[in-house]
Amino acid sequence: WKITIYDQENFQGKRMEFTSSCPNVSERSFDNVRSLKVESGAWIGYEHTSFCGQQFILERGEYPRWDAWSGSNAYHIERLMSFRPICSA
């Protein structure tokens, strides 16, 4: 599993790669995730830290803005603060 997060939209700004769970992006000096690329595996992104709040399934691909992973939710969530890989047995 591999995911790359960015602190600006369209894959700009600070970037960081992960191959395992991140319970709080702010502990990695990110205020928020504004864009991301899922390089391999599937991940679950969460609205809040500690894997809480609205969940987003993140499959392999590029997500240049928050609405790319938020989709058409009843209330739009511009925040992604934690994530972890989906492990299959």
Rank of each mutant, 00 (worst) to 15 (best):
G13A: 00
P64G: 06
L58T: 00
H76K: 14
N73M: 13
F30T: 02
E39V: 10
S70V: 14
M16D: 06
F30L: 08
E9D: 06
R79Y: 13
S40L: 13
A89I: 13
F51C: 03
Q12H: 11
W43L: 02
T19H: 09
Q55N: 09
Q12G: 09
E59I: 06
C87W: 10
G71V: 12
E27Y: 06
S50R: 13
T19I: 07
S29I: 05
M81L: 08
R15T: 10
G61M: 00
M81D: 04
I77K: 14
S70G: 12
S26R: 09
E78S: 14
D7N: 08
D7M: 04
I86T: 12
E47T: 10
G71F: 09
L58A: 00
I86C: 13
I57F: 08
H76G: 14
W66H: 10
Q54D: 11
W1G: 14
M81F: 04
G71A: 13
D7S: 10
L58H: 03
C22D: 01
M81K: 11
D67A: 11
G61E: 03
D7L: 01
S70A: 08
H76P: 11
E62A: 13
N73Q: 14
I3P: 01
A42Y: 08
Q8S: 09
W66M: 13
L80N: 00
S35Y: 01
S72V: 12
E59G: 10
L58D: 03
Y46V: 04
E9V: 07
P64D: 04
Y6D: 01
F51T: 02
P85S: 04
C52L: 14
Q54H: 15
N10E: 09
E47V: 04
Y46N: 02
A74V: 12
Y6Q: 00
F51E: 02
K37E: 05
G53M: 02
I3N: 04
T19F: 08
A68H: 08
F18Q: 03
H48R: 13
E9K: 05
Q8E: 09
F11W: 03
I77R: 13
K14R: 13
T4K: 05
E39W: 09
E59Q: 14
T49E: 15
I57S: 07
N24R: 04
F30D: 00
A42Q: 15
R79N: 15
S35F: 03
E17N: 06
M16A: 11
D67Q: 14
R28F: 11
S70Q: 10
V25Q: 04
S50F: 09
I77V: 15
F11L: 05
H48D: 13
I5E: 02
A89Q: 15
T49G: 10
I5V: 13
S50M: 15
E78D: 15
L58M: 09
Q8P: 01
F56G: 03
P23C: 07
L80K: 03
M81A: 09
Q55H: 15
S88Y: 10
S20Y: 07
G71C: 10
L58K: 00
E78R: 15
K14F: 08
K37A: 04
Y6T: 00
S72Y: 09
N73C: 15
